[in-house]
């Protein structure tokens, strides 16, 4: 017979286990934000026309 370990877990232990899962998820979000912030600058560098257009618009006034 398979034991259901989760029902044997104390409530406090259950909370801690869930908390670690939340923490991992949030940590991954942070990592993704870091990578995206650099990648978008790379993208701009490799699309000089998009960048030039934005600069032109900014200086049009």
């Amino acid at each position: 017979m398979q034991l259901d370990h989760q029902t044997l877990e104390s409530e406090q232990a259950q909370r801690v286990r869930r908390a670690r899962r939340t923490a991992a998820a949030v940590g991954i979000v942070a990592l993704v934000v870091f990578v995206v912030s650099i990648v978008q600058m790379f993208w701009l560098q490799h699309h000089p026309q998009a960048h030039a257009q934005a600069v032109k618009e900014a200086l049009m006034q």
Partner: peptide, 25 residues
């Protein structure tokens, strides 16, 4: 904090690579 500290980290990383690793961000 989760949304913006990594952005700061990204920004200063690009400063570092601009100075020492020949990028031109």
């Amino acid at each position: 904090l989760i949304a913006v500290m990594p952005v700061l980290a990204g920004a200063v990383t690009m400063l570092l690579t601009d100075k020492y690793f020949n990028t031109h961000f």
